[in-house]
Nucleic acid binder design. Structure first.
Lengths: 148, 148
DNA sequence: CCGTATCCATTCCGATACTG
DNA sequence: CAGTATCGGAATGGATACGG
C-alpha cells in the first residue's frame, strides 16, 4: 500500500489525492480501466505487475470507492472491477498526464498511443484550466486560497 | 530517484509521464512551484521532506527540463528553481488532481484550499476532455489507438 | 482462473552529521 | 542558507508456493 500520512489534517486536495492514488500502479490500473479492462488477469497481463501487488492495489481502489466489484459479465463465476462514477471522474487526470507526455516525452520519431474520440477518430483537444467566465487561465493568473 | 523502466520501449504517454514524475514528491514540488515557491528551503519547509530527498528530486526535475536553476532574484548568491515552459504545462495535471480531490476527498465539513482565478476570485471551472469539435467526451466515447 | 501468504532483495526515506 | 554523505529502518515489489 502506498504511503499514507494523516489524511485528516491535510487541507490540500492535491496532496490528499496523491496520498490516496498518487502511486504508479494505481494510476496505471485506472488508465487500463478506461481502456475497458475489467478482469484481474487482464490487468495483470497488461501491467506485468506481481499479482500480490495488483490484488493489494485493487483492494485499495475498491476501498476508496474508485472501483467496485461486480459479478462477471460472461458466464464465469468470478468478479470484475468496474469504475464507479468517482473513479470515472479521474478521466481528466489520466488525460492530463497523457497530453503532457505526448507533448514533451516523445520525439517526432517515437511512436506512441493516442487517445481519440470514437466518433470522429480524432485526438482530443488539449485541456486547459478556465476561470468561471470561460477564459483560459495561466498558472500565474491563479492563486491558492487557504481554508478558514 | 523514483523507479524507472525502459523508457524507450514504452509507447503509452501516461506510463512514460508516470515513470518520470509519477512520484509523490515530484508532483508536490511542482504544485508548490505553481504556488510561487522557488527556493530550496521554502520547498523543504512546506513539504517537510528530507533535504537529501528534495535535492535528489530537484536534480531529477532539472534534468527532465521541468525546472531550471537561475540566480536568486534577491541579492543572495543562491539559486532558484523556476518552472520551464515544459514544467508550466503540467498545470492541467495538478489542477486535475486538485479538482478530483476537492470533489471526492473532502466532506462538507472539511476545509480545504481552493485554487481561484486572481481576477475574479472565483474557483476555476472543472476541466473536461473534449473532442476536436469542442464537445465534451466521456471516457467510453474514446478509444486508444496504438502506434504503428 | 482468481486471488492470498510468505519470503527476500532492493529501494526509499528520514535523521543526523558535515561542508562551503 | 543550500546542499552532500552516510546509515539504519521501513516500505515495496517480484517470485514462488499455496488454496478456493
Amino acid at each position: 500500500m502506498p504511503k499514507r500520512r494523516d489524511n485528516e489534517t491535510e487541507t490540500c486536495p492535491v496532496a490528499r489525492s496523491l496520498d490516496l492514488i498518487g502511486d504508479r500502479w494505481c494510476l496505471l490500473i485506472v488508465r487500463d480501466a478506461f481502456d475497458g479492462v475489467r478482469r484481474f488477469s487482464e490487468f495483470q497481463r497488461r501491467l506485468g505487475v506481481a499479482r500480490s501487488i495488483l490484488a493489494d492495489r485493487l483492494r485499495l481502489l475498491v476501498e476508496a470507492g474508485i472501483f467496485e466489484v461486480s459479478p462477471a459479465s460472461d458466464g464465469t463465476s468470478y468478479q470484475e472491477y468496474v469504475l464507479t462514477p468517482k473513479g470515472e471522474r479521474l478521466f481528466p487526470v489520466i488525460v492530463a498526464f497523457r497530453q503532457w507526455g505526448e507533448q514533451h516525452l516523445f520525439g517526432p520519431r517515437d511512436a506512441h498511443s493516442v487517445l481519440v474520440d470514437k466518433g470522429s477518430g480524432k485526438p482530443l483537444t488539449v485541456m486547459e484550466p478556465r476561470s468561471a467566465d470561460g477564459k483560459v487561465v495561466r498558472p500565474w493568473e491563479t492563486t491558492v486560497k487557504l481554508p478558514r
